[in-house]
Amino acid sequence: MTLGEISIVLLSAFGVFFMLVSAIGIVRLPDVFSRMHAGGKASTVGISAMLLAAGFYFFDEFLFYRMLLLIALLFATLPIATSAMSRAAYLTGPIKRKHLNHDDMANDISRKQPTG
């Protein structure tokens, strides 16, 4: 194996490790918000590392820039998805209150009051 191949394998292994962490995290952690921490952050780093490895592997300039653009797209969209999910979970889901030690959002006046 050449040095380039070793670095590709290391970068992919870094990504696979974080994907495994996010999968174990959404099963092990106790409530929906902590699961979002695992599913949102660890998987962003994991995918980015794997796509970067794929960009290096094919040794093609335009493919590499395309992978960089895809990573930028993921960095723009995954936090928004996480925020949307956590807001939906807070507003409607019967979340486990005993895990929240401090809740300022209870006195938010802008949100829609649930009806029915």
Partner: peptide
């Protein structure tokens, strides 16, 4: 990510969650 990995892989995660 390393911080989240630390919490996920520790046997008893000590969490103190809250909304600020």
């Amino acid at each position: 990510s390393f911080q989240v990995a630390g919490y996920v892989l520790s046997p008893q995660p000590k969490l103190d969650q809250g909304i600020v």
